[in-house]
Write a protein that binds this DNA or RNA. Structure first.
Lengths: 121, 121
DNA sequence: AGGCAGTATCGACAGATGTCGATGTCTCAC
DNA sequence: GTGAGACATCGACATCTGTCGATACTGCCT
């Protein structure tokens, strides 16, 4: 018999089955740890001021693409650092790289950004 | 007279004024450093597996709110750590806290998430 | 009043991350 | 071929971040 008070549970009027969430995602209710890790990985790629500026600069660039030499000055960071950030975005699948001559042109992958937005919506 | 070759500029067919970007945001074209910092701050708050799971758990909870004692077990982290993550989300304005009795109930701020989604779209 | 349960804060520590200068690689112009 | 420019990689370093145990704080119940 539960004569003891059991304050370990807050006054929860009912613990039925889970209802449908009111908004579609963040990957449906419980979100397994592995999925959270994956998602966090992509989010971490854009959770940096320099990389956000890079995305913005690439998006605004003529033809939707930009080479490293166009990005170094506006960011005010060294060329190796800019290359590093671009690699992070590349590994996250948020940009693509295409080499033409000596130059490396980076281009956004809008579907990837859109997928992230979808997921938060 | 540009008789020297100037390989410092890639073969860019024209450098007119900036056109309108094809998709609304990431804060409009150039994105100032300060704005990037602010935005990155909020993104960093959700760019963590534990915090993503917290958001998911709170969203799925009965009544759209959950207290710490309901979140510790599912996350498999210590109570102080969970409190820490909740504070990060709180400081980022992504959740609200309301104390009732001994318990602290956390609730999402959907507008904040929606704003982020909007920004990436 | 006293004890206890739920949370928050503190201090410490390991690991991840952003940054740079130096250096390597590749391509183009001469 | 030689030199120079564009980019990537490497190694080092300072800083940030996630995690924990210990502890302090705050309301409830008896």
């Amino acid at each position: 018999m539960a004569t003891t008070v059991q304050r370990h549970r807050p006054p929860t009027p009912g613990q039925e089955a889970g209802e449908e969430p009111c908004w579609p995602a963040l990957s449906e209710a419980p979100l397994r740890r592995a999925d959270a890790e994956t998602l966090a990985g992509v989010l971490r790629a854009i959770a940096d001021p320099a990389r956000l500026q890079l995305i913005s600069l690439i998006q605004a660039a003529r033809g939707g693409e930009a080479c490293v030499c166009d990005l170094v000055a506006p960011l005010g960071l060294s060329q190796p650092t800019v290359s590093h950030h671009l690699k992070v975005l590349l590994d996250a699948g948020l940009v693509t790289r295409s080499r033409r001559g000596s130059w490396a042109y980076y281009r956004l992958v809008p579907e990837r950004l859109a997928a992230l937005a979808q997921l938060l919506a």
